[in-house]
Design a binder for these strands. Structure first.
Lengths: 110, 110
DNA sequence: CCGGTATATTCCTTGACTGGAATATAAACC
DNA sequence: GGTTTATATTCCAGTCAAGGAATATACCGG
């Protein structure tokens, strides 16, 4: 199940930007995130706290630095939540296919 | 891209419950949603408005009734956002595999 | 120990979201 | 046309999250 905390964490654009950055970089220090995303250091730390408490990121210490990384497990849970909806999505594609099939001359998508 | 409105809509547990219900039922009237989920009618209408403006549900009229259905397109966009993270997820599974492979005697998951 | 760097936390204010109650709109039925 | 049914909207009060500024904590180098 996806906890409320995960959805709440994802609701903020800045936090999604942090996640995207962490994903692309494979992990970042707080300072790096501040530099890249341009939010203040306290704001960034607070967003990281939310992400951490939602279980979406992990931290490990490197002297004074904290290196944050995405916890793929949390994202996988969101993915699992989407699963039943994916069927809907596929069905609507199928319905489109059938519709196109009944329209001779309409180009079919490959 | 996933609009902020979609993430904001998903942030509310009641709205996710509405989506789940609409998905399972393949569409519902407002009254049905009120009965099933137990929120007040005005609250439900307001949640539906948020979902509608985020493009997550569609409405069609049936006399005085409004039948709401999930718009699979919106969910598909969330799915697409998750895509790059799925790679992380798979990599971490692979890493686990490799780790287990270096631990003779440790049972492997099928 | 001290200054400097890196990060976290607190305090405060402001804006946004939520839900309830009442009311409005719209369509059906008689 | 008036009443009933179905849904939407408005108004309002309470709650909560976000950001800035200042401060605290932790760690390193000398």
């Amino acid at each position: 199940m996806v906890s409320d905390a995960i959805w709440a964490a994802l609701a903020d654009p800045h936090r999604r930007a942090v996640l995207d950055l962490l994903r692309r970089e494979g992990g970042c220090t707080v300072g790096r995130i501040v530099d890249e995303l341009g939010a203040s250091q306290p704001a960034t730390s607070k967003h990281l706290r939310v992400l951490r408490e939602a279980g979406m990121v992990q931290v490990h210490k490197d002297a004074q630095r904290r290196v944050y990384t995405v916890d793929p497990e949390a994202v996988a849970r969101v993915d699992a939540w989407l699963e039943p909806y994916r069927k809907l999505w596929n069905e609507s594609l199928d319905a489109l296919d059938r519709h196109l099939d009944t329209q001779p001359g309409t180009p079919k998508h490959s």
